[in-house]
Amino acid sequence: MNGTDIDEITAYVEAVRAALVGLPEATRDELTEDLPEHLAEVLADGVGSLTERLGTPEAYATELRISAGFVGGFPDPPPTTDPLARVRERAMLRLRAADARVGPLLGYPRVSEFLQLLRPAWWVLRGYLAAMVLAWILDDSSQPMGLLPRIGGSDVVALLLLAAGVLGSIWFGRRGAPLERLPRYALYAGSAVLVLVALSGFLSADSNARGADFTDVGYSDPYNHVEDVYIYDGQGRLVEGARLFDQNGMPIRLGRPYCFGDDHAGGEVAADDSKYPYCPENAPFRLPGEAGSASVPSARPTPSEGAASAATPSAAPSPSR
């Protein structure tokens, strides 16, 4: 090897080093430390300059970069020692496996591919939720908001805000530019808040929807405990076979049209559910001399007897009243 060879090798190595821009200095040193000796071997074996036989230093550097695993200026991430990062890595691996395993159930190679199709749906939902949160912040009236972003109870404002929220969210979702690290985390946090809002809103709407049935029947009905109705005329006599109507002529049905108290059978006996009382023998008040139910069973009128004796109660109001 003569001086010209050494010059040629040095120049070639320098050019390769220069082409390895973007790599850390230590990596460049490490990659090229044996290069002069290696090139000397190449040069010693055969004829022609290094560039003729190996291509340009730039091409050589590119090939070297790729084969050594330093593509794009970023070295391979070193094996991680942080336990948290290792847990995260393992979780990601498992998640990816589940992604591929569950996907075919939906008819897609991966679940994530299916979820990506749903992305615009999320944009719409996000716009709605953001409008709701905005209205909730801005609305200082005491009126309930309902399921639309009403401010001061206004439907027009609600629809405008809803349209603006949904369109804005779609526009924001469609813009391709990826976010910087900080705004991205802010976006994730905001999305998480919206999801929580959505869940709590859903739960309260759900409990309201169920509560409508419950409160009336179960808790606030003062006639809930009524089992039978006893009507007494002006002289304090029990009226049997009476019918009750409301102002619209609809029959008022209270209580349960069954009678206990058949001492021999011991069970419930169905009564005519259009006439009160169902069970006259259980009347709470009785004039002296009137038949008591329990003591004189034979006097107990059956519902049909009651109907016959008081077929048209004079007390019945006319439906048109």
């Binding site: 071997e41 091409a59 050589y60 550097a61 070297l64 084969s67 695993g69």
Partner: peptide
């Protein structure tokens, strides 16, 4: 050594293999 390995690969029939690739 590097160049030696390159020659072995080429002799074995991988004539397209690049010098920088083997080195890297």
């Amino acid at each position: 050594y590097g160049y030696d390995i390159l020659r072995r690969l080429r002799t074995a029939g991988l004539e397209d293999v690049g010098d920088a690739s083997v080195y890297g």
